[in-house]
Amino acid sequence: MSAPHPPIAFDTTGFEREGASPVWVDPATGYGVNVAVNEGPPFNAAWMADLATLRRGFAEMFAGRGCIIEADLVPFGGVRAVYQVMKMPHPRNPRGTIFAAVFTLTKATRYAQITAFGAEGNPGDFTGIRETALFAKLGRPDNWILPHPYAPDLKTALPFHRGDDPAFDAQFPDHPLSWVRAQGRRIHQTATVAPELANLPELAGPV
């Protein structure tokens, strides 16, 4: 039996699908992409009407689990999506970090997410490579940890810091944060959304 078609398709060149599951894995890194559909609205509909409100809302919602690095409202496969880049502690390595780039398609009664994910701190990994190299280059600056750009008064489970800046991705192309951002761009450029999802009523706010 063939695997079911996911509601969001993207360029999977170089990926291997895990059987009939909606998960594609990059064999070179072990990082992957997942597609999921859930019932109900994913967050407060009022967030969709104002980008600053949306960014602060996501930063606060995720603060206890990690840290939102980026959030934006973007066109996506003919519809719209909330784009997020986030980080969270690795559940099996206290020094490791999981990174994800997520597109959330926000419909009134259902939402779909496509997530590129990669982890630093898997067994055998040396953690903190990006941070260590940048400390050496920048001289371990006093302003390494920064106020959160979407909520300066917010305390997050993982700090927002200078090493999260996408300007450093080219120096660390194999780091999971660089990888998920690159896959986010690839997904954004190639994604198509199935009509049965795209044609559902919008959650709120301007299209």
Rank of each mutant, 00 (worst) to 15 (best):
M1D: 07
S2R: 03
S2Q: 12
A3P: 01
P4L: 02
P4H: 07
H5R: 11
P6I: 04
P6F: 01
P7D: 11
F10T: 03
D11C: 01
G14K: 02
R17W: 09
R17A: 13
R17I: 01
A20C: 03
V23Q: 11
V23T: 15
V25G: 04
A28M: 13
G30K: 11
Y31M: 09
N34I: 14
N34E: 14
N34S: 08
N34Y: 03
V35T: 12
V35P: 13
V37R: 00
V37M: 06
V37G: 00
N38W: 05
E39A: 07
P41E: 14
P42H: 08
N44S: 04
A45Q: 11
A46G: 08
A46S: 14
D50K: 01
F58E: 04
F62Y: 14
F62T: 06
R65L: 15
C67V: 11
I68L: 15
D72V: 00
G77L: 08
G78I: 08
V79D: 15
M88E: 14
P91F: 14
P91G: 15
N93A: 07
A100E: 07
A100G: 06
A101V: 10
L105M: 07
T109I: 12
T109D: 13
Y111A: 15
Q113S: 03
I114E: 09
I114S: 14
F117N: 04
P123E: 09
G124N: 14
D125L: 05
T127S: 11
T127W: 10
I129H: 08
E131H: 09
F135T: 01
L138I: 10
R140I: 09
D142A: 08
N143A: 06
W144F: 03
I145E: 06
L146I: 00
H148F: 00
P149H: 06
Y150D: 04
D153P: 00
A157K: 05
F160H: 10
H161T: 13
H161E: 12
R162D: 01
R162Q: 15
R162G: 08
A167V: 15
Q171S: 14
F172I: 05
H175K: 11
W179E: 01
R185Q: 12
Q189F: 05
Q189C: 01
A191P: 03
T192K: 07
V193F: 07
V193Y: 09
L197H: 06
A198D: 08
N199P: 00
P201Q: 12
E202D: 07
E202T: 05
P206D: 12
